[in-house]
């Protein structure tokens, strides 16, 4: 890291290939490049590790099976048997976010999920998808989600707006949580990395801290991908079973 470089420099979007379609800037950026890398790596990881398909799994196969089972269990516990249909979606989402988070920890790489545009696109897609799913499955009964059962009708004018705001806030809290976690963690790492250089010999203290911080960030990378999957299941469950 060059002296004087801002810790926020790592989040800058750079255009790698300039593309302009009818005045719309559709350039291939470092963010897009990272997403392509993530998709390729996830595909390679899952296909190569399962190629042997051995009874006694190799180390790589174990990792692939563990992640599969973790999400399968999350979907089963969160949505129930009807949730099986949506397992591929949740699993894809989880693997993509997990790899984005983890690859972002490699120095000089780019963390796709630190940008709220990206996480909000995920969250908005889930939100719209889940709403359509609920409407298709339950029709007008879907709106009973906004009026809890057993509530006196006199309270409805107060409670319905509250429930609607609560419902609309889901994509925001979902996307902000992931992006904020990633951005805060990476900024702190860069700040401490700056101390290591600036303090010279005494830099050993922040350096030790940096190593611990890296371990924490690795855990957060995993945890946030998992939380995203869990909440996706939760919202799916609300749409399918119509209760909170």
């Amino acid at each position: 890291m060059a002296a004087g470089e801002s810790p926020l420099e790592q989040f800058a979007i750079k255009r790698l290939v300039e593309i302009n379609i009818g005045g719309v800037d559709a350039s291939f950026t470092n963010s897009a490049a990272m997403m392509v890398i993530v998709v390729v790596l996830v595909t390679l990881f899952l296909t190569l590790s399962m190629r042997g398909n051995a009874m006694v799994p190799t180390r790589w196969q174990s990792i692939a099976e563990l992640s599969y089972e973790l999400i399968a269990k999350t979907v089963r516990d969160g949505v129930g048997l009807e949730g099986r249909k949506y397992f591929p979606f949740v699993f894809t989402l989880f693997m993509f976010i997990l790899f984005c988070n983890l690859l972002g920890l490699i120095p000089y790489s780019f963390t796709v999920t630190s940008h709220i545009v990206v996480t909000f696109a995920f969250a908005a897609f889930i939100f719209i998808g889940v709403t359509i799913l609920g409407l298709v499955r339950h029709g007008a009964k879907f709106f009973s989600l906004f009026l809890p059962e057993g509530v006196p009708i006199a309270l409805a004018p107060l409670l319905v707006p509250i429930e609607i705001i609560s419902y609309l806030s889901r994509p925001i809290s979902l996307s902000v949580r992931l992006a904020a976690n990633m951005m805060a963690g990476h900024t702190i790492i860069k700040v401490f990395a700056g101390f290591v250089v600036a303090l010279g010999l005494f830099g050993i203290a922040p350096f030790v801290f940096l190593i611990l911080l890296y371990a924490l960030e690795t855990m957060i990378a995993f945890l946030q991908a998992y939380v995203f999957a869990v909440l996706t299941c939760l919202y799916l469950n609300d749409s399918i079973h119509l209760h909170h």
Binding site: S166, S169, R170, S173, V176
Partner: peptide, 8 residues
């Protein structure tokens, strides 16, 4: 975040 999002 749950609280802040709804406020926003």
């Amino acid at each position: 975040t749950e609280m802040a999002a709804a406020l926003v």
